Simulated scan of single mutants.
Amino acid sequence: MTFVLARISAEPIDPATVSDFVAGPTHGAVLVFWGVVRDHDGGRSVSALEYQAHPDAEAFLHRCCADAAAASGLPTAAVHRVGDLTIGDTALVAAVAAPHRAAAFDALETLVDRIKSEVPIWKRQRFPEGTSEWVGL
């Protein structure tokens, strides 16, 4: 049985909770992608972010995790934050565990790429001068 955790959260994400979900005694590699809000993008200063999710975003996230788990046979987990985030806040934590690192690296890269391209979550960047703009729309 392969384990899957997929959640959209308005509360801060605890990366240890996500990695602990996939960890186990047969896994020599527990890999975690920890996406944090940075203070710049495209040469422009960023002061904060806002994430909004489609009502079905969690179902899309679950599908990405379940597909990654089915393809790799590995436990997968992902939690994406929504709402207002400040610089340094955790926006996304994704984790995969495997007996060896190569399989975990491949599965985690595939999982994060799918989350970023398929889960309907939108990001608005806020700038120090008080303006904001949606990214990727």
Rank of each mutant, 00 (worst) to 15 (best):
M1R: 10
F3M: 14
V4K: 05
L5Q: 10
A6R: 05
R7A: 15
S9D: 10
S9M: 08
P12A: 13
I13M: 02
I13N: 01
D14T: 13
D14A: 14
P15V: 06
P15K: 01
A16F: 07
A16L: 13
D20F: 01
A23V: 01
G24W: 00
P25Q: 12
T26C: 11
H27A: 14
A29K: 11
V30I: 14
L31Q: 07
F33D: 03
W34K: 07
G35Y: 07
V37L: 06
R38L: 06
R38Y: 10
D39I: 12
D41M: 02
D41W: 14
G43R: 07
R44Y: 00
S45N: 10
S45P: 11
S47D: 14
L49E: 07
L49M: 12
Y51H: 13
Q52S: 15
Q52A: 15
P55E: 10
P55G: 11
D56V: 12
A57K: 07
E58T: 09
A59K: 14
A59V: 15
A59S: 11
A59F: 08
F60Q: 14
L61T: 10
H62M: 01
H62Q: 01
C65E: 06
A66H: 14
D67S: 10
D67T: 15
A68P: 01
T76L: 00
V79C: 07
G83L: 08
D84C: 08
L85E: 09
D89Q: 09
A91P: 08
L92G: 01
V93E: 00
A94M: 01
A95L: 03
A97G: 11
A102L: 14
A103Y: 02
D106I: 11
L108P: 02
L108N: 01
E109F: 08
E109P: 00
L111C: 05
V112K: 01
I115E: 00
I115H: 05
S117C: 13
E118H: 10
V119G: 08
V119D: 11
I121L: 12
I121M: 10
W122G: 08
R124F: 05
Q125A: 13
Q125F: 00
R126D: 12
R126C: 14
S132Y: 08
G136F: 08
